[in-house]
């Protein structure tokens, strides 16, 4: 139990540092900054209290916001994502997640992929809608969601296969 908190705390700090020191400065093609910290919400244990999950996600978003001067945009999108995660999981895994011994690593590749993709799409939609904040620029929002979303997806998949193999 202690171990679980420890791993999550380390993950939290490392993902924030990696995000703000490396990926926020990437500016690939001038605007592509992948958001890898979404992996925290992907890896976060399932059988924990929902309220604490929402709080932790809020803190994560706020930490990123402090570093990147984005007011509270990241916080707003991580909170929405944390609240919607159980719904997304039920959509992807069906009744399987009701079982006590359900683990992410036990699910199939396709399920993991869909789950991660949905998380990223929801997060980026909320984030860029709030950042650009006008319906007149809806094409620009969609363009950013698609392009930056696929970059995030690619990197998250890479990180996921790098770091989750040894675990569990």
């Amino acid at each position: 139990m202690n171990n679980k908190y420890f791993i999550n705390a380390i993950r939290f700090v490392l993902l924030v540092l990696v995000q703000v020191l490396i990926f926020n400065q990437l500016n690939f093609f001038g605007f592509i900054n992948p958001m890898v910290y979404i992996l925290f919400l992907y890896w976060y244990p399932i059988n924990t209290s929902r309220a604490s999950f929402i709080w932790v996600s809020f803190l994560l978003g706020l930490c990123i916001d402090f570093f990147s001067d984005t007011m509270a945009l990241h916080a707003a999108s991580t909170v929405s994502l944390a609240y919607l995660r159980p719904t997304i999981m039920r959509f992807v895994y069906g009744v399987n997640i009701e079982f006590q011994n359900f683990k992410l690593s036990n699910s199939t590749r396709v399920q993991q992929f869909t789950f991660l993709a949905l998380l990223i799409v929801v997060h980026h939609l909320v984030f860029f809608t709030l950042e650009i904040f006008s319906l007149a620029n809806i094409l620009m929002i969609l363009k950013k969601v698609v392009v930056i979303g696929s970059a995030s997806m690619l990197l998250c998949l890479l990180f996921n296969s790098l770091f989750s193999a040894g675990k569990e």
Binding site: W55, F58, G61, A72, L73, A76, V79, S80, Y83, L130
Partner: peptide
């Protein structure tokens, strides 16, 4: 609805800041 209310509260908080 405590989770929903918590979510709503935090979302409003961050929107207010933004």
């Amino acid at each position: 609805h405590k989770n929903f209310l918590l979510f709503l509260f935090l979302l409003m908080l961050s929107l207010a800041f933004t």
